[in-house]
């Protein structure tokens, strides 16, 4: 049993980090804006130029980073819970590569017309990603179905589908011209594409409904972790619950991938980090994973904008570069 005070202090800690990062992130970037000007804009008295940069460019992007981080992390926590495998994440189960395939296909279809990638076709990209993710999930589920779905079959068909999609991605990518190839590589490494308010509105309902729903049902996940036989003995409809969790996880991952690209590592690592801090109980694990994921992705996004400004490093790479050492540090400290 984890003391309530510990949960509370961890939550407060993460919230503080998010707050500080938000302020720093608003300040930094190609145009530096002083903290006092930021405050002025926020109360509606800043200069028009500052207001434009902050409200139209930076703020939506940061909000989206928070949402994607939370979505990916919860999706990873759910997938690790239902497959009972610590290596499961949206990436390894083929959901990311499904989205990736759709996007790579899309980029190769519009054939690198530089102008075409602005405006409407850019707006369509997230939808193709969402479509690909949903298709991949459907395929995995259909292939794993045999009078119900077991965790192991889910993992196995995930491995297969993932490998096949990756192969097709490689084929399409190698046929592209260098400019498109670069674009596809950056997308696959994970970078936040949708940075306007419409995108925020588009993914807001997913996150606001699905994450609380997952938290609300988390106790069932605890019971599922005891094994199928015990769970059905305790009166849980194993197949139905597992399918429900899978749908939630896929929807979260799909929505996140559609605007954030293949930020795979986040979904894998965040549940582990949180588990190390507060243990395995899902009703605490899921909301804290959401917070931690949001925090980590916000930090990573701020760094990705500033390391080589005005050029950007794909945020997925920054997540790995800062997440992995921290994870290794935790491995060092703790016994398993």
């Amino acid at each position: 049993m984890i003391p309530k005070r510990r949960i509370l202090s961890v939550t407060l800690c993460i919230l503080c980090v998010i707050g500080v990062t938000l302020i720093i992130s608003l300040n930094t970037g190609y145009l530096r804006i002083a903290p006092i000007d930021v405050l002025r804009v926020l109360v509606g008295k800043g200069s028009p130029q500052d207001a434009l940069v902050l409200i139209q460019f930076r703020l939506p992007r940061m909000v989206i980073a928070l949402f994607i981080g939370a979505g990916m992390a919860v999706s990873g926590a759910l997938l690790q819970g239902i497959t009972q495998n610590d290596l499961a994440d949206p990436g390894i189960l083929g959901i990311n590569s499904g989205a990736g395939l759709a996007v790579v296909f899309y980029i190769s279809m519009i054939q690198g017309q530089a102008s075409a990638l602005s405006g409407l076709s850019l707006f369509l990209m997230p939808f193709s990603a969402l479509f690909g993710a949903a298709l991949a999930a459907l395929l995995i589920y259909a292939l794993a179905w045999q009078h119900g779905v077991t965790p192991l079959r889910l993992i196995l068909s995930g491995i297969g589908v993932n490998a096949a999609f990756m192969a097709v991605i490689t084929i399409i990518q190698l046929r592209m011209d260098p400019k498109d190839f670069m674009q596809a590589t950056i997308w696959l490494s994970g970078s936040i594409w949708g940075t306007d308010w419409p995108y925020v509105l588009a993914i807001l309902p997913w996150m606001l409904i699905l994450i609380p729903l997952a938290t609300f049902k988390a106790r069932t996940l605890n019971i599922l972790a005891l094994g199928d036989a015990v769970a059905s003995g305790l009166g849980v409809a194993v197949n139905r619950e597992r399918t429900l969790f899978l749908i939630i996880a896929v929807a979260l991952a799909g929505a996140s991938v559609s605007v954030g690209g293949g930020i795979a590592f986040l979904g894998l690592i965040v549940p582990h980090l949180v588990r190390r801090i507060i243990g395995r109980r899902h009703e605490v694990l899921i909301p804290l994973s959401a917070l931690m994921g949001a925090c980590l992705l916000l930090i990573a996004d701020t760094l990705s904008r500033t390391i080589w400004a005005p050029a950007e490093v794909p945020v997925g790479l920054v997540v790995s570069a800062i997440g992995a050492p921290y994870f290794i540090y935790l491995l060092f400290r703790e016994k398993i």
Binding site: D86, F265, L268, I269, H272, S320, A321, A324, I328, L331
Partner: peptide, 10 residues
Amino acid sequence: VLAGMAVTAF
């Protein structure tokens, strides 16, 4: 496996 995963990602 976990260490391998983290190092690989990094």
